[in-house]
C-alpha cells in the first residue's frame, strides 16, 4: 500500500501532501487544500470498490460512465473557480486524459498518478509516477482498490513493508486493462 511517507520518499504529489499530512483529510480538512470529490467509474468493479471505500471514509463521491463531461460541466468547472480543493479518482486513462486537459485550463495539475495494470491471470501490478519515470509498488491483495482509496483519502496507514522502489518504467499506455488512480490539485 502506498503511504504518505512513500510519496514523500518518491518526491511526488507535493501539492497533495499537505492535506494528507498525518491525519485524515476529512477529519481535519485544511482550508487551503481539501478533497472535494472522489470519482469512480460505475462500469468498472475495481473503480466501484475504490469509490465505496472512499465513501465509507466520508469522502463525497461521484460516479461516471467513462465520460467526464457532466462531472466537469456541472461541478468541477465551478469548484475550480472558487476553491483550491483537490479531486481524486480511479478511472480509465482516457477519462483522466479528458479531465486533465480541463484541469490544465483551470490552472490545476495531476499531482499524483498511479497505474494499476491487470496482467494475464488477473494479477494487478502497480506503479506510481515519480520525477523521471515510474516506480513500481506492490499490493498483491484483491482489495487494492480499497487500499488505494484509503491512501488517497486518509493517508493514515502505516508504511507498507512491501512498498519498494524498483526499476524506472516508461509512460503508461491507455489500455482497457489499465486503471489510473489520481489526484488533481491546484498547481
Amino acid at each position: 500500500m502506498l503511504t504518505r511517507r512513500d510519496m514523500v520518499k518518491l518526491g511526488i504529489a507535493s501539492a497533495a501532501i499537505p492535506a494528507m499530512a498525518g491525519k485524515a483529510v476529512f477529519a481535519a480538512p485544511s482550508a487551503a487544500v481539501r478533497l472535494h470529490k472522489v470519482v469512480y467509474d460505475a462500469r468498472i468493479p475495481a473503480s466501484v470498490a475504490f469509490g465505496n471505500r472512499a465513501q465509507q471514509l466520508g469522502a463525497p463521491v461521484e460516479a461516471i460512465n467513462g465520460d467526464v463531461t457532466a462531472l466537469w460541466f456541472n461541478d468541477l468547472h465551478f469548484m475550480w473557480r472558487n476553491s483550491k480543493a483537490s479531486v481524486a479518482g480511479l478511472t480509465r486513462p482516457s477519462s483522466l486524459f479528458a479531465l486533465e486537459q480541463m484541469a490544465h485550463l483551470a490552472g490545476r495539475r495531476v499531482v499524483f498518478r498511479a497505474e494499476h495494470r491487470t496482467q494475464a491471470g488477473g494479477i494487478c501490478t502497480h506503479r506510481v509516477a515519480a520525477p523521471g519515470g515510474f516506480v513500481a509498488f506492490r499490493d498483491a491483495s484483491p482489495y487494492w482498490p480499497a487500499h488505494m482509496a484509503q491512501s488517497i483519502v486518509r493517508h493514515a496507514a502505516p508504511v507498507s513493508d512491501h512498498m519498494r522502489a524498483q526499476s524506472m518504467i516508461a509512460a503508461p499506455a491507455p489500455d482497457q486493462n489499465v486503471l489510473i488512480s489520481w489526484i488533481i490539485a491546484a498547481a
Partner: peptide
C-alpha cells in the same frame, strides 16, 4: 458540447 469522444483512446 461534450467530452464523450475521449473514450477514443480506450481499448474496446
Amino acid at each position: 458540447p461534450s467530452l464523450q469522444n475521449f473514450v477514443f483512446g480506450a481499448r474496446s
